[in-house]
């Protein structure tokens, strides 16, 4: 039997395909990203080694700071809207006496399964200045409140972040909801016997118990915000001007529009470091003892 499970040929047959595909498509390019970030490289040939010059240039690039700021704004909007609303809705829907809860759950989650292109196009028409849903609605209500949602330099990044928050709120909702459901009933009983109100019980008991889930949600929302790309690519193409640039957008533009592949790699490398840092910080902040029940 022992020998049966040590079959060398079988082990190779089972593992080699996955290892080869993963190494070529994921692992090798990561190494390349870091390596090529030290080259002046136009995507053809080898390029010239310039060590850290790309990074120095990045630090002097105005677009880099715009991108950093937008990444942080995006992350903050996602954290507040997705986790905030997600928490409220999940706690409310976990109440079994609530009428229509399965319908509510489905409506909260549906945008998650849509393609990002559809969502962005849909919101382009919602934000449309002349004909869009929001401005039409304002008109109907007799308000002269017309907003240039996506063409405002200051507001565009928030408008885009809201779209992403709208689409993936349901995901955070589902995560938190699943975690609430898995909590043992006696905690709530104890709270009820103590006469604690619902909100108080949730604040003091439920939310602290969900700490693993919140850690995950935070990592997801923050790295998701820092990584943001498709939303601005489709909705504003980085504009107006360069007001909605993010690091990924900067990387994309450097490499695929102006052929500065080395510079793009440096932007990508900074992005990895940023996400890694965010993950480490969140883990540290939540690094207290595990709650067991």
């Amino acid at each position: 039997m022992h020998k049966y499970l040590k079959n060398k040929v079988a082990i190779i047959v089972f593992t080699l395909p996955a290892l080869v595909v993963f190494s070529i498509i994921v692992f090798y390019p990561i190494i390349q990203t870091f390596y090529k970030s030290m080259f002046d490289w136009n995507g053809l040939g080898k390029g010239t080694f310039i060590f850290l010059d790309n990074y120095v240039r990045l630090l002097g690039d105005r677009l880099f700071y715009t991108s950093l700021r937008n990444g942080l704004i995006f992350a903050a909007v996602l954290v507040i809207l997705q986790i905030g609303i997600g928490t409220f809705l999940a706690l409310a829907v976990s109440d079994v006496t609530l009428k229509g809860r399965s319908f509510l759950r489905v409506t909260y989650f549906i945008p998650v399964v849509l393609s990002i292109t559809v969502v962005c196009q849909l919101w382009l028409s919602i934000y449309n200045e002349e004909l869009g849903l929001i401005n039409k609605l304002m008109e109907q209500l007799g308000l002269s409140y017309r907003q240039h949602w996506l063409s405002s330099e200051k507001g565009a990044i928030y408008a885009i972040a809201v779209v992403n928050a709208w689409q993936y709120m349901g995901y955070h909702f589902a995560l938190i909801f699943a975690a609430v459901k898995s909590l043992p009933e006696q905690y709530f009983e104890a709270a009820r016997i103590d006469g604690a109100g619902k909100i108080k019980a949730h604040l003091n008991i439920t939310i602290p118990l969900l700490y693993e889930t919140y850690k995950f949600c935070l990592i997801l929302a923050i790295t998701g915000g820092l990584n943001a790309f498709a939303n601005m690519f489709i909705m504003t193409n980085g504009g107006p001007g360069d007001a909605t640039y993010t690091l990924t957008f900067l990387m994309y533009r450097s490499a695929f529009r102006v052929n500065e592949f080395g510079y793009g790699c440096a932007a990508a490398a900074v992005l990895v470091i940023e996400c890694l840092l965010a993950t480490i910080i969140i883990n540290k902040l939540f690094g207290r003892e595990q709650i067991t029940y």
Partner: peptide, 12 residues
């Protein structure tokens, strides 16, 4: 994140 390997992947 996918974005991180985009450039080398396109070249590959």
């Amino acid at each position: 994140p996918v974005q991180v390997i985009m450039i080398p992947l396109a070249i590959l």
